[in-house]
């Protein structure tokens, strides 16, 4: 028949010490370090046996207790001189225990208050508050303009032949055309015509990918100075010309 012992959970070494002190029914100020150290180490031992992981703080306290005990056993060499420099470690521990006890008790009082006051229920704010921070359109934009822009966008998408109605799945396809293809294509084109317009070079492109590739090819050819561009007025069609360098 296994012997079951229920071990109290301790919040920390100070909590454990307070428990031991209250068990031996002495005032904190009157503790016997020898006794308390013994009991403390015994408890740690028990915790170990029950496979409870002992936090490092408990071990630090064990060391502190042993230190105090040794201080008591070994008589001080020059009592009057040293008392000024080093505070009594036992007194220090007692002060800490008293201080900790205050807050432990305050915590218990808070618990009572919490239990009582958690019985208060509040009402959620009326929902009209949630609309308070709705986005405001910039002053020079009106709904008609936005509507028009949206229609144009949808139309141009239809032109591109996209038949899917919603953004359900997106298929990633291998690029069927490369920039190099397009560069060759454009070079061919401009070997026949020395001048063209921006929109007309996209006329053969039906898919989004093709448009992008042609555009990138155009940028490339501009970079290597094969082509040059010119625009006569804002938003006008861009005229693309072949540079007459060496060929």
């Amino acid at each position: 028949m296994p012997y079951l012992v229920k071990l109290q959970q301790f919040e920390g070494p100070l909590d454990l010490l307070l428990h031991l002190i209250s068990k031996s029914k002495v005032r904190i100020e009157d503790i016997s370090i020898t006794e308390i150290t013994e009991q403390y180490l015994e408890t740690l031992h028990m915790m170990e046996q029950f496979d409870i992981e002992i936090a490092s703080e408990f071990l630090v306290m064990a060391a502190t207790l042993l230190h105090i005990k040794s201080c008591i056993l070994v008589p001080k060499a020059k009592p009057e001189m040293e008392e000024l420099e080093e505070p009594d470690p036992k007194q220090e521990l007692i002060t800490r225990l008293l201080e900790y006890k205050k807050y432990k008790e305050a915590g218990n009082k808070l618990k009572e208050r919490e239990a009582y006051y958690s019985g208060i229920f509040y009402k959620l704010p009326e929902e009209l508050f949630t609309n308070e921070k709705s986005e405001v359109l910039p002053p020079d934009v009106n709904i008609d303009l936005l509507h028009e822009a949206l229609c144009r966008l949808l139309q141009s998408r239809q032109k591109l032949g996209s038949t899917e109605s919603g953004p359900a799945f997106h298929e990633i396809k291998r690029d069927t055309i490369t920039i190099n293809d397009r560069i060759d294509h454009l070079k061919n084109y401009f070997s026949m015509y020395s001048k063209s317009t921006f929109f007309s070079i996209f006329e053969d492109d039906s898919s989004r990918e093709e448009i992008i590739m042609t555009f990138l090819a155009l940028l490339e050819l501009l970079k290597v100075n094969y082509l040059e561009v010119q625009q006569d007025y804002p938003f006008g069609d861009i005229i693309i010309k072949r540079r007459n360098l060496n060929g």
Binding site: G12, P13, D15, M61, E99, Y100, Y103, A106, G107, K109
Partner: peptide, 23 residues
């Protein structure tokens, strides 16, 4: 609750202070 008590009574307080009181 213990930690809250330390903070409530000693605020403003650092983590180190709280830890030294609670051990």
């Amino acid at each position: 609750l213990e930690t809250l008590a330390v903070i409530a009574y000693r605020q403003p307080v650092t983590k180190a202070d709280i830890e030294s009181i609670r051990g």
